[in-house]
Design a protein around this nucleic acid. Sequence first.
DNA 1: CCAAAAGTGTTAACCCTACACCCATGG
DNA 2: CCATGGGTGTAGGGTTAACACTTTTGG
Lengths: 247, 247
Amino acid sequence: MTRSSGTEDPIRVAVSTVILTLRRDGALQGPAGPSPRIALPLVRRTRDPYQGSWALPGGWLDAEEGLTAAAARTLGETTGLAPSYLEQLYAFGAVDRSPSRVISVIYWALLREEEAAAAVGSDPENVAWFDAAHLPELAFDHARIIEYALWRLRNKAGYSRVAQGFLPPEFTLADLREAYETILGRKLDPANFRRQVDATRTLVPTNAFRTGSHRPARLYRDAADVELADRGPLSPEETSTAETRTS
Amino acid sequence: MTRSSGTEDPIRVAVSTVILTLRRDGALQGPAGPSPRIALPLVRRTRDPYQGSWALPGGWLDAEEGLTAAAARTLGETTGLAPSYLEQLYAFGAVDRSPSRVISVIYWALLREEEAAAAVGSDPENVAWFDAAHLPELAFDHARIIEYALWRLRNKAGYSRVAQGFLPPEFTLADLREAYETILGRKLDPANFRRQVDATRTLVPTNAFRTGSHRPARLYRDAADVELADRGPLSPEETSTAETRTS
DNA sequence: CCAAAAGTGTTAACCCTACACCCATGG
DNA sequence: CCATGGGTGTAGGGTTAACACTTTTGG
């Protein structure tokens, strides 16, 4: 087996994150509507290559920083928030994906709806939120990356509780159903949805109700001791959920 | 957003592969048996760190080489074979996983049973095949990586046709069932298995039969136009199946 | 009282599983 | 003819999807 020493490699490692949340207001680029839409923040590139284009938030991996920590750091710099869910998506490393040789380890994250609406990162000038269905021209292969992140979200929503990553700690079943409907792109039967979620035993009912329109709806909280979904082969320091649950 | 220039980074990128196949002979380290077992090749490290320990086959990423190409290259160097299935597993990048800073992009691959039995790589001296259930002490975090690869295999066997990656182009339903049983670790009902696989419409029956014991069993071929499983967000040059189907 | 969302009940279709049974071959 | 794996049939249980129905609020 031949191994080059590696010391002369000009290969650099970047970490970027597809940050997803739900938005129902019209404060994002693209057509507004009454039902929520999947939204994500992009940063405008201030240097070549692709100067002026929109790109995923990210940065170079620091020498003394783990991959997940780098994703969480750039996420905080961009939005000022900690995610409710964070998982590695894929490592992209085609030779021609950038003028210089860059390996991009991509993460995807979910933010709670309300927090995201008020969030301000460290450089709000060059950050804007876009409707995931109406994205602008993107730098590098980021358009394909976002497509894959959305596919992963849809897929994982089918067999896990990831959709709760979009919701505040207390929510109604209608909130949760609406999140699923937005992700999956189709309406769900309220009666069957209710039965399916409480068959999983992962929601605990509270004694509070949301009032204001028609019959009040009971608020639920997620069972704190259960992960929203399998996040992959995490190292010990990554398995704690406490850090990602605090804002 | 702060971005270091990255040019002073001592971070290096390695690509390794968890190569899996089925073996029924006793020619591998660990207890032999009549039913096949999952086997994988490991290489003995000839230098520090972990000199003398067993490790996953791999090497440094070349500057002008894509990630998938690097995985296929080291796979060929180790076994002399092209895989029937190759997919990225995960990028491992904890700071303390190696004395120097190394990002390891791990792939997992399936080899056909018969091909693997006769395979000889470019350095057979330092390569040995092990029963996946009885592995030796491994270098770095490779034990955990292999665990995750086996989990991914079991998982993917539940909803895709990956198990066919273990089989030659023509096989009986009993062959296929046995592969699934080995992966999943439990017996499957032959009658129900038959119905489930031909409900997927991905197997084409041939007019040949395998004789030699009891009633002859019909040989099947896989529908060539269907991928064994979703391999992720592949770039155009990676989507061709031709290269991975030839030995 | 009416509209509309919250929540419960019911039923038919579907799928999965277990297992009985017949078929074809080697010994 | 017998043992054994190949292959087919079928009945029961569980899950899903569709939709009728009752409950509770705001207006």
